[in-house]
Write a protein that binds this DNA or RNA. Structure first.
Length: 287
DNA sequence: AAGACGGGGCT
DNA sequence: AGCCCAGTCTT
């Protein structure tokens, strides 16, 4: 059984019962959930989604609301511009698409508030069609399981997208299931912090796991760097390479008990162009 | 490629 | 105090 089948089977048994996953949910209602879920945990969205759908069950009713009502109903979900864009999209759906969501990526992404992720999600979860869904969960799972790296890069490279596409089953139905399954898996098991590897159905084939991570299970032994500046540099470079391509600064800081020595060595690495420092404090090998 | 944009929960 | 969350839009 391939990883696709394993994670889909896991999903059937372990998926949360979220209100927008019930049957007879319209494409507009899926859209509302996807917009609310942008940068907002599902547990916090659920009650807000219910209230919203009860008040505005379809695009036409939402289109008739005022912006003030929309903002008020949005309450404290955050990023209130999402509510205004959703409102605008509802109007466009009524005006141009018979109150429903269009089915092509280009039409979807042209709507306000719908970017790459949401367009792909609508195609998969509202229309049950094949698409390449790439959210923070899926990117993290692919990075770990297939590439053996804890975190994906800050932006989606073309290679990353192509690889993700290669994992999506060909048939529409299976493709949609795969996307929701790997996403849920990332949200519940392969989490950003404190991943539940002991409950992971694919731990045996996970390259991150095989590489000896997460370090919380295998105690990170602090390592002392000794020798000349050049020798210390070589040791840190080896560490960076072993970790594939990136790791948190906190992890790096633990490798030596002499923080100042470490900072000096790292500084010289950066100066020499041997290591890149990203804005969020991660280190990576230059491309 | 980097910043701005919210708020709440968790460590 | 910092990280993270089913991202999008604008420089």
């Amino acid at each position: 059984m391939g990883i696709q089948e394993q994670l889909i089977a896991w999903y059937e048994q372990n998926a949360r019962t979220l209100p927008w996953r019930k049957s007879r949910i319209s494409s507009y209602q899926i859209l509302v959930s996807e917009i609310m879920l942008q940068q907002t945990p599902a547990a916090r969205v659920a009650p807000q989604w219910q209230a919203w759908i009860k008040r505005w069950p379809n695009a036409a009713s939402l289109a008739n609301a005022t912006p003030a009502e929309v903002i008020r109903q949005w309450d404290r979900l955050g990023y209130p511009n999402r509510a205004l864009r959703l409102h605008q999209t509802a109007k466009e759906l009524v005006a141009k698409h018979n109150g429903k969501l269009p089915s092509t990526y280009d039409e979807l992404i042209a709507l306000p508030g719908i970017g790459d992720y949401t367009a792909a999600a609508i195609i998969a979860f509202a229309h049950n069609k094949r698409s390449v869904v790439l959210d923070t969960n899926i990117r993290r799972v692919i990075s770990r399981v297939w590439h053996g790296v804890e975190r994906p890069g800050t932006s989606v490279s073309s290679g990353e997208r192509q690889f993700a596409e290669s994992l999506v089953p060909l048939a529409d139905e299976s493709a949609a299931k795969w996307s929701i399954a790997i996403m849920e898996f990332g949200a519940l098991v392969c989490t950003a912090r404190d991943p539940q590897c002991s409950a992971c159905p694919i731990a045996n084939t996970c390259n991150w796991r095989i590489a000896g991570f997460p370090a919380s299970d295998i105690k990170p032994k602090t390592q002392k760097f000794e020798g000349t500046d050049r020798q210390v540099r070589g040791q840190i470079m080896k560490l960076l390479k072993d970790s594939a391509s990136s790791l948190p600064k906190s992890t790096l800081a633990e490798v030596t008990s002499d923080t100042q020595q470490f900072e000096r060595a790292l500084h010289s690495l950066v100066i020499d162009g041997l290591v890149d420092v990203t804005k969020n404090g991660r280190f990576q090998l230059p491309k």
